[in-house]
Amino acid sequence: MTISLDTDTDVAPLALAARTTPTALWNDSADPDELRRSIVFGAVGATCNPVIAFTAIKKHPDVWVPRLRELAAEHPTWGESALGWEAVKELSIEAARLLEPAFVASGGRNGRLSIQTDPRLHRDVDALVAQAVEFSGLADNIIVKIPATSTGIAAMEEAAYRGVSINATLSFTVPQAVAVGEALERALDRRAADAFPEQEFGHVVTIMGGRLDDWLKTWTAGRRILTTPGVLDWAGVAALKHAHRIFTERGFRSRILSAAFRNHLQWSELVGGDLVVSPPFDWQARINENAIPAKNRIDVPVAPEILAELQSLSEFRRAYEPYGMTSAEFEEFGAARITLRQFLDADAQLDALVRDVIVPAP
């Protein structure tokens, strides 16, 4: 489908794309102040994960230090982990309220607040499903992030069958996105076979394009492979475009989501697609400040010479081909191991932050 973009140069690029194309803008933070500003840019969704939650809570000690002390007094047997996750839930509920108008206006397709399951549960299907169901009950417009590993994908299918809206995370590659898309189709088909009521879940399947770029830079450097400068900055974009094309061709009832921004291409090259882009707020501001054009480029292929050089790398081929990896390999992919460790470390940092509040140093 060809989309004619509005040519009003007085409209900021993000707002223009949001107004004139199916491309949805989400804010890659649940910080209420940032989210309010992002909504002005056209944002109709937001996300939270351990890193984001830790950053938001640390950024607003005037709000969260007294609140954590209140929670500790209300729940005298809770440890720092339980108290920290209660703060994450409260942060998410507040952000979800800001998105309710978009949720209602879109019939549930947008207006979603993503909350991530505890990364420490990443090996346990039943625990992931139970927490996903719990989080789903926090607000009508909650969407739950579960890692795109073999364990996580099994949990996604079961949670989606039980009525949870899903956002795949810890996801960097086309094979992961396809595996999740297939799992969500199975869940929706199971619901239909069991005569469950139809509803709009707004399922999304993230590809953290910038983290794929990061990993390929690490991988090539470790093997002393020289590439044309700038080529590796297209790896995530190529994967996102390819995954979007596959989802469209197969009629998947979920959308691709672009996350982990490293350059504006991870927005500008995807405009026009029926997908979600989720930049951090600072990236949104810079895209507008620099007047990056909002042009329909989703169907414009990555330059053949760039794609050919990327495909000369075996690690890129694994990430690009729809069945380039088995589900058992997803958790061992370099970007996945690095990111999971960061999520786990953020959990530990949140625990430490809470500990300093409830057991201050003498």
Rank of each mutant, 00 (worst) to 15 (best):
E329P: 14
T20I: 09
A239T: 02
G324S: 08
P50S: 06
L68A: 09
F333L: 03
V63C: 12
A179V: 14
A132D: 11
R297A: 14
E80D: 11
T21L: 07
R355W: 11
I153M: 00
D10P: 01
R318G: 12
L350C: 07
D282R: 14
A308G: 14
A18H: 00
W234F: 13
W215K: 03
T7G: 15
V11Q: 04
D124T: 04
G181M: 08
P362N: 04
D345K: 11
G42A: 00
S150C: 07
T2N: 13
I225G: 08
T339M: 03
A73L: 07
L170E: 02
R191C: 06
L16Y: 07
L91F: 06
A193H: 10
R37N: 09
D214A: 05
D28Y: 00
V65E: 09
T218E: 13
V40Q: 11
P322F: 09
G152W: 04
D347M: 13
L170G: 01
I153F: 01
Y320H: 12
L138I: 03
L216Y: 04
R69A: 12
S150N: 08
F343A: 10
L184T: 11
V359C: 14
L310P: 07
F261H: 10
A179T: 14
V271R: 01
A18R: 00
Y323Q: 15
E158V: 09
P66G: 01
A260E: 05
R255Y: 03
A187L: 07
V144S: 05
A96Y: 04
G163A: 10
V63Q: 13
V144G: 06
E74D: 11
F343G: 05
D33V: 14
A243V: 05
S29I: 15
F316A: 02
T151Q: 06
L310T: 09
A43V: 02
W234H: 13
I207R: 03
L113G: 03
E86Y: 09
L113V: 07
Q116G: 00
L313C: 08
S312A: 12
F41V: 06
P304S: 13
I142A: 01
I115K: 00
V44H: 02
S29R: 12
I358M: 10
T117M: 09
L307N: 09
W283P: 02
R337W: 10
K295I: 15
A73G: 07
V178E: 01
R341N: 11
V231S: 04
